[in-house]
Design a protein around this nucleic acid. Structure first.
Lengths: 141, 141
DNA sequence: TCTTGACTTGGACTGTGTCCATCGTAGGAT
DNA sequence: ATCCTACGATGGACACAGTCCAAGTCAAGA
């Protein structure tokens, strides 16, 4: 993800200050931000940036495949810049922390053709839920 | 799910007309309804039923484990009365149809302890995405 | 039948996201 | 270096999903 700006420029993106800021934020290791969190961080660097621009830009990045939308609950969508290698998500049911995980094997092999109900299946997203180390057994926090 | 009313009564639920109607709707084979769809159907039988009651009742049914919340996109949560046997979901990326599927094996075994990042993992939800038979290759619908 | 606390109601409110008319500007053309 | 213009940004209204609350209603036990 580290040459995101360069890749976007090659795709013909007009390089505005707003897009640069948003790309920088996603390029950091701040993963799984909501659109609102991206907006808050962006506004620290560019105070007048609008929510609409953040939504537009995130939407475009998703279409380009540069970031992935993650929906782990009914709340705000989260934006995951780690599209380099496939992964799934581990969510703490207590504090909401989200981490990337890499299960063994390919989940699609677990769904043979005769169980696909005639669908042409393209992807599988897995959300594992449980307690993170901080919230686990014995925690009173 | 067919003795839902009976099970609820045994759990000490006060049996109101509203709760009866909602339980009946979920008891049918109308799976994966949104809260709003439940409200619409309920209002056909009980015109004055309020949205708040539908939300309250669905929430209670989720806590009791009688229905499961399913979030496949960022839109409205869906309520799945099939909690009898574990299953996952297959979503058509074109028309939005949702079907229950039963992959082979247990997805938790694909995440060995050394990949759990210290989490105590309890559940795994898989969302498979693709095209349903009606929307598949060759379809112009 | 009476009583009471659990349940329901409707409306206000919040959070998340979209839309749109208008304004501004990046970047190619000159 | 300057001009043009189409693409992008803005902000405010709007839509949708869900929550909250004070007041009224009623199921079910006494």
């Amino acid at each position: 993800m580290s040459d995101l700006l360069e890749r976007l420029r090659r795709r013909g993106w007009r390089m505005t200050a707003q897009r640069r800021v948003i790309a920088q934020i996603l390029d950091g290791d701040h993963v799984h931000l909501t659109a609102d969190e991206v907006h808050t961080r962006a506004a620290r660097l560019l105070p007048e940036i609008s929510r609409a621009t953040v939504y537009n830009t995130l939407g475009e990045l998703v279409v380009l495949g540069e970031v992935a939308e993650v929906t782990v609950d009914g709340r705000a969508k989260r934006y995951d810049p780690n599209t380099r290698r496939p992964h799934h998500h581990l969510v703490c049911t207590r504090c909401g922390t989200i981490r990337d995980v890499h299960p063994t094997g390919d989940p699609l092999t677990r769904l043979p053709a005769d169980r696909r109900l005639g669908f042409t299946v393209a992807t599988a997203d897995i959300v594992y839920r449980g307690l993170c180390p901080d919230c686990g057994v014995g925690s009173t926090a």
